[in-house]
Design a protein around this nucleic acid. Structure first.
Lengths: 139, 139
DNA sequence: TTTACATATCCGCCAATGCGAATATAATTT
DNA sequence: AAATTATATTCGCATTGGCGGATATGTAAA
């Protein structure tokens, strides 16, 4: 028995990161648990598209979902594999430095401050911080 | 002016890492400069296939090539973007921990010790270390 | 200048991906 | 039991990716 769980598919892991919409989704999640309608609103993309990319991330095990009534909450889940987790954390802190990603997060923050201004966010649960040391590697 | 060079395509960067043959190639390069015939021999894959994947990595800027007579030497080149470089280094040290990747490197080392035993390696230049702090991030 | 060798590129094929549009499912409200 | 809301899945299509096989290019040797 080694330190690895089983055989982790590195290629699939990186393929999951190889799409800009999925990177934007991960960036918005960060340390929060967010419901789908926020992704749709902030990224201004069709809902089926968002849903498909979330399904992709879920299938690979990078995010997990939790249902609460009609809403689905998504959050990042660190992969069981040590190497994958390290690369993912590094990637998340990289995302934080990208201008376009910062702009996405700024819009999210703004929307959270006044969700009543967005039709699609009426009554939707606000994003909620989850305790996870995402930035543990941030130099 | 920020710390970013221009707009770096993160998605393309990760797509380049999203293939097992390319990961194996990067693993074999590590801190060395290696010529194509070694890749073909060690990975036991058709030469056009190896060449195509090397071209892909070159196009994305993760590796660079140098010609020496009939031989082409490939090495890893750290991307100009800070975040990309960090993720790449982290990925390379992840590769070092994978059993299959260790096996590949072991075969490479063995072949380098007695290249005369491999028809395809007759007269081929041996891999040569390059000075690059690939492991600078190792914990 | 042939010939041989190392490497790169092209071609045709099939699988996978991303997308918009439509539709399905699941939970809630009326 | 509808009707509504939130989210997921399916379908058809265009694009891309990976592959094997054939071929082209580039360099050195004969």
């Amino acid at each position: 028995m080694g330190t690895k769980q089983k055989t982790f598919r590195m290629d699939l892991f990186f393929q999951a990161l190889g799409n800009n919409t999925r990177l934007r989704l991960l960036n918005l999640m960060g340390d929060q648990e967010i419901c789908v309608c926020y992704f749709v609103e902030i990224l201004a993309q069709p809902q089926p598209k968002i849903s498909r990319h979330l399904a992709y991330l879920r299938k690979v095990g990078i995010v997990s979902a939790r249902r609460e009534g009609k809403w689905m909450h998504y959050r990042i889940t660190m992969p069981p594999h040590v190497g994958a987790a390290q690369v993912l954390r590094q990637t998340l802190s990289w995302l934080q430095e990208e201008h376009a990603m910062q702009a996405d997060r700024a819009r999210l923050t703004k929307a959270c401050c006044s969700p009543q201004k967005f039709v699609a966010l009426q009554g939707a649960p606000l994003p909620k911080s989850v305790d996870r040391p995402t930035k543990s590697l941030s130099r």
